[in-house]
Amino acid sequence: MKVSDLIAELLNAAEKSAEMARAIRREESLFQLLIEEKTGDDKGRRFGFDFKTLADVIIQEMIRRDLEKKFPGMGKRVTGEENNKFTNTVGEAVTLEIKDNKKKTTSTLMKILDGNERAAGVLANLVHEEMNLPRPAELQAFEQLQLDKKAIGVWVDPIDGTAEYITGNRDTEFKPGENISQNGLPNVTVLVGVYEKATGQPLIGVINQPFFHTADGKSWTGRMVWGACIGDTKVTCIPASRRDVQMSEGGKHAVLTSMSDCKKLGTYLCESFEILTAPGAGYKLLCVIDRLCSAYVLSKDNTYRWDTCAPHAILKALGGGVVQFKGLLASDLSPGKRDQSLREQQITYHKSEPKANGSNAWCNAQGVIAYYDQEVLLALAEHLSRK
C-alpha cells in the first residue's frame, strides 16, 4: 500500500476519533453512562484505580474498523490500551464490535448501555460517519513509497489523559500554542502510531488534540500533528517557524515530568534546567514536539508503548527521539560510542516486557527521555548521571 494513502487514512481516523471524544463530552447524559472501572491485569500502574470508558473502547474499535475497510487485513494489526469487553448492570458480558451497518452497531451498544436506544444511536451514527479530510501537501513526499501491511503494526491510545477527559476541567491560564496546559481537557490526546514489526522502529505518528481551543469553555476545536520517518524520507506537518525552542525567563531549557518524579529529578536538574509538570503522557510528548519544552523525562515505568509510539515517530522525523531513561544513563556516551548508544537506547515497539502480564507487558519499563535536540539529551544524561 502507498504510504501517502496510509497516512491520509490515519489522519481521517484520528480526526473522527477526536470528534467522537468531543461529542461524548457534549452529551452529558451519555457521558455519565460511560465509566467502567478497570480490574486485574488491565489496571494501569499510574493510579490506584483506572477507568475504561466506552469512549476509549469505541474509538479504538472504530479505528480498527476504518483501517480494515480501507486496507483489508490491517484491522488485526491494530493494538491498543483497551480490551473490548464490557459487563452491563445485569451481569451480561458483551464484546463491543463495530458492525457493518448502523442498525447492528446500535443493537450491540444497547446491550452495553442497558437498553438506552438514544445513547446507542448517537454513538452508532458517529461510528459510521465518513471522514475525508483534505490530503496535506506534505504527503507528496511519500507518493512513491510503499509499505507491506504484513510488516507493520499500529499502536492506538484512543483517549490519553482519561482522568482529564472525565473531569473535564480547563486551565484558565492556558494559551493555545503559547504555553503548557497544567490540567484539563487540553491535556487529552488521541495517539495513533505505526511501527515496523521486524525492528520495532516507529514509522508514522499522528496526534490529535481534540480540545485545543475554546472561546466559551463548552465548544471546542482541535488540531492535528503528524510526522513520518521511513527510510531517508522524513516529513512532518510542523512548520519550520515553530521549531525554535521556548526558553524559560532564566534562559534555561524546560523539562517536563510527572508530579511523582518532579522532586527526584529536580534534585539533579534544577541548576541547569527548569522543571515543569503537566498531566497526560501523550500531552507531555506533544509539548516536546511543539518546542514548548526541550525534553520529557520520566524515570518510572508508568508509560506504555501506546503512549510513546506516535510521538516517537514524529520526533524521529524532526531529528529527535525517545530513549530508555535507565538504559541511556548506563550507556557509553563518549564521542566514539555516542551515536551507537543513542540508536541502541531508542524505544522499540514490537516486543513485550518479560515476566509481565496484561497491559503492563507493554510498559516502558526503563522510563523514558523524549528529546528534540541531541545536545540537550546529552546535557540531561550528564546531570542525571551524577546521582
Rank of each mutant, 00 (worst) to 15 (best):
T106S: 15
D66G: 01
D42E: 13
E92C: 08
A93N: 11
G73V: 09
M62I: 02
E92S: 10
L54D: 05
G48E: 14
G40D: 15
T108P: 06
V78G: 03
P72F: 09
G80K: 07
E97H: 11
G73S: 10
D56N: 12
G44E: 13
R64N: 09
K104H: 09
I59K: 00
D114R: 01
L67R: 03
K52V: 00
I58L: 15
K85H: 12
K103D: 12
D50L: 02
I58H: 01
L67Q: 03
D114T: 01
K52E: 01
G75Q: 10
G75T: 10
D50T: 15
L96A: 02
M74R: 01
R77Y: 10
K104N: 11
E81G: 03
I58M: 10
K104V: 03
A93M: 06
T108C: 07
V90F: 05
M74Q: 06
E68W: 08
T105W: 03
T95W: 04
E97I: 11
P72L: 07
I98M: 08
F71E: 11
N84I: 05
R65K: 12
V94A: 10
Q60L: 11
I112C: 09
K70M: 13
D66K: 12
F49H: 14
M110K: 05
M62N: 15
R77S: 14
G91D: 09
E81C: 06
M62L: 06
